[in-house]
Structure formats: C-alpha cells, structure tokens
Simulated scan of single mutants.
Amino acid sequence: MTPVEVREVQVTVDCAGPAALCAFWCAVLGYERQAPPPGFDSWEAALDAWHVPDDQRDARDAAVPPAGASGPRLFFQRVPEPKTVKNRLHLDVRAAPGLAGDARMAALEAEAERLVGLGARRLQRYEPGGMDAGHVVMADPEGNEFCLD
C-alpha cells in the first residue's frame, strides 16, 4: 500500500468584513491574527509598502493557533454577496470535552453567553438524549452557523 501524504487544511470563510470576523473567531478559539510578513512591523506597513488602496485593505485576514498549539488556519475573504442559506459545512467548537449531562450543558451555556457578548447569536439548544450528548447551535456575527459541542 502506498503511504498517503497527510495534508494541512485551511478553513476559508466568505464574509463581508474579514477583519471583524477574524477578531471574533480569534476570541472564540484563542487564536491569534496571523503576523505580518517578515520585514514588516504591522499589516498596515505591509499594505502601505504594497500600495494597496484603502478600499481593498479589509479584503482578507487570517487567524492561526498560538505558538505551540495546533489547528487549522482560518482564512477570511471578503465576497460581495451576503450569506443566504444554511451552511453545508460548519465548525463544532469543543466547549465541553469530557463532560456529560447537566455539567456539559452548563459549560455549553456559559460559553454561549460569553460568545453572545462577543457578537454571536444563539439559535437553538439540543438536549442530551439518544446519540446526542447535547449541544448549542450558534451563529457568528455574519450569520454563519456553528455548534458548541
């Protein structure tokens, strides 16, 4: 059997305001805004050096795990059309790993409350039962659904 090369993935999010959505997801996940390229002290300095017009400066942004942590890079790109239907792919934010029952739901509720304070919207709570351990469906500030799991 030929070995399969493991590849990294990047999660790309189409949005209206990349910088704001990047900041939201950094706060949700404990990520950091990707550092500017070598030779630049800030993204603003890089954009100035590259002569990027003001109206194109919020065209993209990226969030990465902090040093020593693992996870996919999140790339936010501005698109002209608004979100219109439910996501076919969404993130599950593991907010209560290892917890069950009331303790799990309490942890999920606490995280939901924190994220609402950051601009998220709570959409629906699913109670534990059967194969579902219980979760909360949320939407980020631009309406992209995600779950607190």
Rank of each mutant, 00 (worst) to 15 (best):
A95H: 00
D92L: 08
G117Q: 07
R88Y: 08
G71S: 11
L99I: 02
E109K: 07
R125P: 00
R114C: 08
R88I: 05
F76L: 05
R78L: 04
A103W: 03
E109V: 08
S70L: 14
E111Q: 10
V116I: 15
A67E: 15
D102I: 02
V79F: 06
V137Y: 04
R104Y: 04
M138F: 07
K86L: 09
F146S: 01
K86W: 06
P65T: 13
A62F: 11
P97R: 12
G129T: 13
E113M: 08
A59T: 09
L123P: 00
R114K: 11
L108A: 02
L91M: 14
V137G: 02
V93Y: 06
V79R: 08
L99C: 01
P80I: 07
L108K: 00
F76P: 00
Q77Y: 07
V136K: 00
P72Y: 14
G71A: 11
N144C: 09
P53I: 15
P65R: 11
Q124G: 06
F76W: 02
G119D: 09
A110M: 03
A95S: 06
D92E: 12
F146L: 08
A62M: 15
V93S: 02
A63Y: 02
A112C: 12
R57H: 08
H135Y: 14
K83D: 01
R88Q: 10
R122L: 15
L148F: 03
A120P: 00
R125W: 07
L123W: 05
P128C: 14
A110K: 06
Q77V: 14
R94N: 13
A59F: 11
R78M: 05
A67P: 01
L148I: 04
T84R: 10
L148V: 04
V64W: 07
V93C: 02
P66E: 15
D58I: 06
N144K: 04
V64D: 05
A106F: 05
G119A: 12
P82C: 12
Y126A: 09
A67C: 09
R114F: 10
A133P: 01
A112F: 03
L74F: 15
G143M: 07
E113K: 10
V64M: 13
R104M: 03
L91E: 00
E109C: 04
Q56Y: 15
A62W: 08
V136N: 00
D102A: 13
G71K: 05
F75E: 10
V116L: 12
V52E: 05
C147V: 06
R60C: 11
S70Q: 15
A67V: 13
R60Q: 12
A96N: 00
R125N: 05
M105K: 02
G130R: 09
P72D: 14
K83V: 03
M131A: 15
P72H: 14
F146H: 02
F76K: 00
E145M: 10
L99V: 02
F75W: 15
A69T: 11
S70C: 13
H90K: 06
A59N: 07
D92A: 14
V137S: 07
D55P: 00
Q124W: 14
P72E: 13
N87F: 06
R78I: 02
G130K: 09
D61W: 06
D55L: 10
G134E: 09
V64P: 01
V52Y: 07
P128T: 11
V136L: 14
P80S: 10
E111G: 01
D55R: 05
G134K: 06
M105S: 03
R104V: 03
A107D: 01
G134D: 09
R104A: 03
P97N: 12
G134N: 10
A112H: 01
